[in-house]
Every structure is written in structure tokens, then in C-alpha cells.
Design a protein around this nucleic acid. Structure first.
Length: 609
DNA sequence: GCCGTTTTCGGCCCGACTGTTTTCAGTCG
């Protein structure tokens, strides 16, 4: 059973409990949290169970752990069956539709006679289209239309943007907004600000005392397709790509709490509010409110925002112009957005032991670049010459780059032809370094190669070619579906040579297209630690691989990482920032990343190979 | 059902929006 299936089961239990009369609503929350915990877990729950490590997951207590025990042993949980039994299976399918929660799902199932899970959504859609929902109690013409719209959205969803697309949109809009003299600060919000690998919407916050002027400027954005809506403080544009951009404008005085609130993540905010509550403080996007126990019982103290810079009825609300002061007020260090995922960042911030995250400016080189040196490779050749790559890398302030074309194709060449191709490539690079050493340019070019791992674990390059190289990396480009053990054996077999320094794009995932391979990470980490091997964070936008959660595990296991762009053209070298973002989300500091080291140090490291 | 720097009992995030309402329930982020 996969994590996703387990999470769905917990959500079904939560929904069923919420519909069960007299049940404790906090039990519902507990199951929802357990579902979240499972869904966000970097390890397979089945593996944790195998290793008796279920108690490492916050949100899974002794009761749910025993239910999981039964689930993995027998394939079912009698306790859950009892809870789910009174309800039609269709109910839990309808929960997938945005806007439909447990109560409405049950109403719809009963009123429309929908019970089968597999046909639930199509039958609901048909009923809505035939106008059979508007007359139900609690529904109307508008909610009927919403159901049709939301089913369509559900079917077409999972269209998230790759991070660089969202970032580019945000960068361009930010540049445009800053042309207005009324704009004092601009920040992206949400998953984009946290630099998640994929982003749903681009949301942007602006601090300004003149919201109408900013809205007007925003809606004049030259690259827009159309204005979706424009209100007093918010506006939305549609771009020609079809993506939507939302803007929020707030006065500078309370900008910090707004930024904090809408940066999220949801999980981080929940934990932060729980933490604050223990100090008698209540958090919201408007600021921080001091509460007493009795005040907590009468909540609906609704705040109304007045015009301009002040709030009406804001007695007791402390406002914050920036995030730093917001966190400091709670006794916390400011937490970088990339860490705000509800892990242990709040505790670490309280103890002043947050990591000092790596930054783009720490990067001194890029060790996975495909040039146009034609080694008649097994996969695509790069477009740019050595000199073009070096020119751009120099602008980026690098001290070195490494050229790693794909190995010559095995099918078209004899071993000696392959060796000749590698010799020719090596000569070109050596010549380049020799000529350049007379110029001011100190940037050094390492002679590398990216070698396919064949399905049986052999390398797609004769061993007598390896000695010609400064280093090589290995990667999987075929047979993505092997068992975990077979895949791990395969990788470790290819990894086992001193010249092979790192595993490139380790999981082989393609965001939104292909899941990563199954690997036994404990064995991989153990091997890397013993043999001083590295794992790559590939900054290619579709890859961003190693994924952030595995970056964190690797660092915890004291494994060194290397961030590369996998460039196939000089313009791709700028993707480095996205690799750095992944590293930051994985809590990496500069010393964890080998290409923050100087040329001298890198030479020493590679000579060991 | 979970969890612990006010804890092994007694709490459990916060506010907005929407549609159907007559004062609010359900859902979302």
C-alpha cells in the first residue's frame, strides 16, 4: 500500500467520523493530520513499519500505529471498516471534488442515490447538468453550476508550473511593479516564495500606501492577456500562457504579518499558531493579538480594515511592518521561507540553531555541463562551445566548470573507437586550459563525462577510458522500473570505481511526467559515506533531483552533494539558482555542497579519484 | 486520537468566502 493510498484511507476515516453523531471532532482532526503526515513523509510508511519506526512520524500515535500494523499484516483494518460501513463508498470519491466536503457529499449521495465509488463523480456531473441538484435543500442554482465547474477543474488539474516558469513570471511582474513610485516592497507569496519545485499560482504582495494606484499600474501590465478582476486591494491578471497572477496590496505598517501569513506553508502556520497560543498570543494576517483564556472562548471578534493605514477595532493587535519583527516578537529567529514546511524549523528557530543556508553566491563551479564537443554520444549533445561556456561561467564568477558529455554510444562504436573519441575530447580540453592559462582568465575546465548505467549495472564506457578523465558521473537513462533491491545493486555496481565521483540526477524523476526510481537510500548513503562519493542536485527545471526531502536525509547522513545545471547550452548555466533552492529546502549549508569549494580544493578532491 | 518549555490531562489555528440563510454551516487555504 502506497503512502497516497494510506493517506486517502485516513481521510475517508476522518470524513466518516465527522459524519458520525456524537463523535469527537478532534478525533477527526487527528486523522486528517495523520493523513497529512503520511502524505508528506519522505519514507514509505510500509518501510517505517518494517523497521518499527512509525513513532518517528508526528501525528501517528500508538492507536493509529496499531491500526497500520493490522493493515500491513492483514490488508484491512476492522476498526476502520466499522467506521466506514454506514456510508456509501461513493461519498469518499466525491470528496475529491473541490468545494464538496463530507456533509455535502453525504447529502448528494443520499438525494441522488449515488453509491458506487467508480461512477460517483460522473453520476454527480450528470445530475448537475440535468438540473437535479438546484432543488436539494442547502443547494441552489449557483452551487449546482459550481459543481459542474469544479468537476471540470478536478479532471484537468495537476497542471502545476515548474518553478522556473513561475519564477520568471514573478520576476517580470516584479520588475514592472517596481516602476511605480507608489510601490515600496514586492514579494512573491506561497509555494513560489518557498521555492517549491512546482507552483500552483503566482501570488504577489505589494506594500503601498496607495493601493488604487498600484492596482491601476498592475492592470496596465503590457504582457497581460486580460484583467480578470480588479478591486480595492486585490487584482488578478491572466497571461497569454493561461496562467493567473494575483496581486495583494497592503499598507506598509502591517505588511510583515501579511507576508508571513500568505507565504505559509499551511502546516508551518498551524504549528506557529499553536506555539503562539501557548504564549497567550493569537496570530493572523493582521498581526498578533494578546488573548486570555476567557477571550479565547468568545472568538468572533472580527476586525474590519478601514481605509488607508489604520484598522478599526484593532485594540490589542500588534502590527508588524516586516517578517523579522513578527518572528522576533514570538521569541523566534526569522525563518527562511524555504524551511517553512512544518518540520522542526520552529523549534530550531527558538533554540537559535537554524542552519545557515547555502546561497547562490557560494557556488564556485558547475560540474555537469554538456558542450558541443562531439563524442558521438548516446544521448543529446550540447549546443555551446567550450569558449562560450567559459565566457558565461566567468560572468557568473566561477573558478571552474566540468564538461560531462554523454558517453559515446555503445552500439555504433568499437571500444577502441570510443577510446579515440575520449582522447580527442581530452586533448581539446587540455589545449584550451593551456592556452587560457596565459590569459587573465583563471577559470579551469575539468575533463568529465556522464556515463549511462546499463540495466545490469555495468557502465556504458570501457574502463580504460576512465583514466583519461578528471572524473565522471553516472546516471540512469533506461530501465526505470526495477525492484528496489535490483535498482540499488545496479547503481552501486556502476558507482564502484574511483573515477566515478557522483550519481547524477539520482532518482531520474521528471516533474509531472515520470516518478523517480526506487532506491534503498540507506544503502546508497552508506556507500557514499564509506567511499566518499557525492550525490547530485540536478538543477534542470524538469528534474530538480535529488528532491529536497532526500537532500535533507543525505545531509543528515553526512553525505556531500554537488549542485549542477546539466546545461546543454551556455544559457542554461543560469539554472543554478534552482538547484540552490532545492539545497536550501533540504537544509543545506555551504560546506555540504562540494562546488562551493575553491578550485584548489576541488582539484585535490578530484585527484583522489 | 495526538501530544507535552503552562502537560500524562486537557487542550487542540485562524479567518475568509460562498451560498443559502434570517443568523449560519460548510469548505478552503
Amino acid at each position: 500500500m502506497t503512502n497516497l493510498e494510506i493517506a486517502k484511507l485516513f481521510r475517508a476515516v476522518a470524513a466518516a467520523l465527522s459524519l458520525t453523531k456524537g463523535d469527537n471532532r478532534f478525533r477527526v482532526i487527528a486523522y486528517e493530520r495523520a493523513a497529512d503526515a503520511v502524505e508528506h513523509s519522505s519514507s514509505e510508511i510500509k518501510d517505517l513499519w518494517d523497521n518499527q519506526e512509525l513513532d518517528t512520524l508526528t501525528g501517528i500515535g500508538s492507536n493509529i500505529a496499531s491500526h497500520l500494523d493490522e493493515l500491513f499484516k492483514t490488508g484491512k483494518v476492522r476498526h476502520f471498516d466499522q467506521i466506514l460501513k454506514p456510508f456509501p463508498p461513493a461519498l469518499f470519491e466525491l470528496l475529491e471534488i473541490p468545494g464538496i466536503g463530507p456533509k455535502n457529499a453525504l447529502k448528494l449521495c443520499k438525494a441522488l442515490g449515488i453509491s458506487q465509488a467508480h461512477s460517483a463523480i460522473s453520476r454527480l456531473e450528470k445530475a448537475a447538468k440535468n438540473g437535479h441538484i438546484r432543488s436539494l435543500i442547502g443547494f441552489g442554482i449557483e452551487s449546482e453550476a459550481d459543481i459542474i465547474k469544479n468537476i471540470r477543474e478536478f479532471r484537468g488539474r495537476s497542471r502545476r508550473m515548474l518553478l522556473p516558469i513561475a519564477q520568471t513570471i514573478a520576476d517580470e511582474i516584479t520588475a514592472w511593479l517596481k516602476k511605480s513610485s507608489f510601490v515600496s516592497q514586492v514579494y512573491p507569496l506561497g509555494s513560489l516564495r518557498r521555492q517549491a519545485s512546482t507552483v500552483g499560482d503566482v501570488d504577489i504582495a505589494v506594500s503601498s500606501d496607495n493601493a488604487p494606484a498600484v492596482i491601476a499600474h498592475f492592470t496596465n501590465y503590457p504582457k497581460k492577456s486580460r484583467v480578470l478582476e480588479a478591486g480595492d486591494k486585490t487584482a488578478s491578471l491572466i497571461l497569454p500562457s493561461g496562467f493567473q497572477v494575483d496581486l495583494m496590496v497592503q499598507p506598509p505598517a502591517a505588511f510583515g504579518s501579511l507576508l508571513q501569513h500568505f507565504t505559509g506553508s499551511k502546516h508551518h502556520n498551524i504549528l506557529l499558531r499553536e506555539y503562539a497560543l501557548k504564549k497567550g498570543l493569537s496570530l493572523s494576517e493582521y498581526g498578533i493579538k494578546k488573548i486570555s483564556k476567557s477571550a479565547k472562548l468568545s472568538p468572533s471578534l472580527r476586525l474590519r480594515e478601514g481605509r488607508g493605514e489604520s484598522y478599526q477595532g484593532d485594540k490589542g493587535i500588534v502590527k508588524f511592518s516586516n517578517e523579522k519583527s513578527f518572528y522576533h516578537f514570538l521569541g523566534l529567529d526569522w525563518i527562511p521561507p524555504e524551511l517553512r514546511e512544518g518540520n522542526e524549523e520552529i523549534n530550531r528557530s527558538k533554540n537559535h540553531t537554524l542552519p545557515r543556508l547555502i546561497e547562490l553566491k557560494d557556488i564556485k563551479g558547475d560540474l555537469q555541463i554538456h558542450s558541443n564537443i562531439d563524442v558521438q554520444p548516446s544521448h543529446d549533445l550540447g549546443e555551446s562551445s567550450i569558449s562560450d561556456l567559459v565566457r558565461v561561467a566567468s560572468i557568473l564568477g566561477y573558478e571552474y566548470i566540468g564538461l560531462t558529455e554523454h558517453n559515446p554510444s555503445l552500439s555504433g562504436h568499437t571500444p577502441s573507437q570510443i577510446r579515440d573519441l575520449i582522447i580527442r575530447k581530452s586533448d581539446q580540453i587540455h589545449r584550451f586550459n593551456d592556452e587560457k592559462s596565459h590569459e587573465n582568465n583563471i577559470l579551469y575546465v575539468f575533463n568529465g563525462l556522464e556515463i549511462d548505467i546499463l540495466p545490469d549495472g555495468r557502465r556504458a564506457l570501457p574502463d580504460n577510458c576512465l583514466e583519461l578523465l578528471d572524473y565522471a558521473c553516472i546516471s540512469i537513462h533506461s530501465s526505470f522500473r526495477l525492484s528496489r533491491k535490483a535498482m540499488t545493486d545496479r547503481v552501486l555496481s556502476a558507482f564502484d570505481h574511483p573515477k566515478i565521483r557522483f550519481l547524477a540526477h539520482p532518482t531520474g524523476r521528471l516533474l509531472g511526467q515520470r516518478e523517480g526510481v526506487e532506491l534503498d537510500w540507506d544503502r546508497i548513503f552508506d556507500f557514499c559515506a564509506r567511499q566518499d562519493k557525492w550525490l547530485e542536485i540536478d538543477a534542470w527545471p524538469d528534474r530538480l533531483d535529488l528532491p529536497d526531502v532526500l537532500v535533507r536525509e543525505a545531509i543528515t547522513a553526512k553525505i556531500k552533494l554537488v549542485i549542477d545545471t546539466d546545461s546543454h547550452a551556455a544559457s542554461h548555466l543560469s539554472y543554478m539558482r534552482y538547484g540552490v533552492s532545492v539545497a536550501r529546502r533540504g537544509w543545506a549549508e555551504a560546506p555540504d555542497i562540494v562546488n562551493t569549494f575553491s578550485l584548489t580544493k576541488m582539484r585535490q578532491l578530484l585527484q583522489r579519484g
